[in-house]
């Protein structure tokens, strides 16, 4: 078992060291959700009122409402970006080195996904700390209970990114991922508005949001931040994670099959 342990630790450490070296990466990961939180939410606060709903015990501000969604947005961007680079790196760069390891390939990909999830977790924690200064009031213990939820979500979205990049050639650039994956997933979810509000606006949009696994990620985290377990969301995200990771690992070819 020790070789597997050393490998996992080595991959996590390397990703972490690289992350520390790339300070602009952290900055750009934080600036997007902070803009949403500080600018967008402030504008919408006046226009939208969010009534009492679970898990909140009282009326909450719009900033408070969208915080879990923005946390998931960070994770979504990071997961997709890393998975995309894994696919790109197959033919050139460091992924070649990884694929030359004698350890099982699914295990190596698993290590990469775990490392990505840890980096996402760190970014979200920093975001949540900054969010405190913008009237986002999360119970202190909520940060702790949110950690496993963020990790699970990060792993799911990383695996989903890998699966999509394996299957869809056109997703080789990040613009494609933004337009066809990130934005639809984000906007068609409960990240920015409660689903009952969406139901009032459009029933078919509501149903799309309802079947979007990202909605369950957001709700899992929303409840976890209040030390509650949304069992329905947890089951959906867990099952989706299992399914997507297995598919991602077995659809990963060392080289794109389109040319070979």
């Amino acid at each position: 078992m020790m070789p597997y342990y050393y490998c996992l630790v080595g991959i996590i450490k390397r990703e972490f060291l690289r992350f520390l070296q790339q300070r602009t990466r952290l900055l750009s990961a934080l600036i997007r959700p902070l803009l949403w939180l500080v600018v967008f939410a402030a504008g919408f606060r006046a226009a939208l009122g969010v009534s009492i709903m679970e898990p909140y015990g009282t009326y909450i501000t719009y900033q408070q409402y969208i915080t879990p969604g923005l946390c998931c947005m960070i994770v979504l961007f990071n997961g997709m970006q890393s998975s995309l680079s894994m696919v790109y790196d197959r033919e050139m760069g460091s992924m070649k080195l990884l694929l030359m390891s004698p350890l099982p390939r699914p295990f190596l990909l698993l290590c990469k996904l775990i490392a990505t999830a840890i980096l996402s977790l760190i970014q979200v924690c920093i975001f949540l700390l900054i969010a405190q200064f913008v009237d986002v009031d999360t119970p202190a213990w909520g940060y702790l209970t949110a950690i496993p939820a963020i990790f699970l979500i990060a792993f799911f979205l990383g695996a989903l990114g890998l699966l999509l990049s394996n299957l869809i050639k056109q997703l080789e650039n990040f613009a494609g991922v933004m337009n066809f994956v990130i934005f639809p997933m984000f906007f068609l979810s409960s990240a920015l508005y409660p689903l009952w509000k969406m139901k009032e606006a459009s029933l078919w949009l509501y149903w799309i949001c309802n079947y979007n696994p990202f909605s369950y990620c957001v709700e899992l985290l929303r409840f976890a931040l209040y030390q509650e377990l949304n069992l329905n969301a947890f089951l959906v995200v867990s099952l989706a994670t299992l399914l997507v990771s297995v598919l991602a690992m077995f659809s990963f070819a060392p080289k794109r099959t389109l040319r070979g």
Partner: peptide
Amino acid sequence: FQQSTLDLDLSVKQNLIYQGSLHGLSA
């Protein structure tokens, strides 16, 4: 490989340790 697969922003030591870990070796 023909194209370098080193991590330019990591040290020589860190690059070596990473390679070792991929082969199941301790630092």
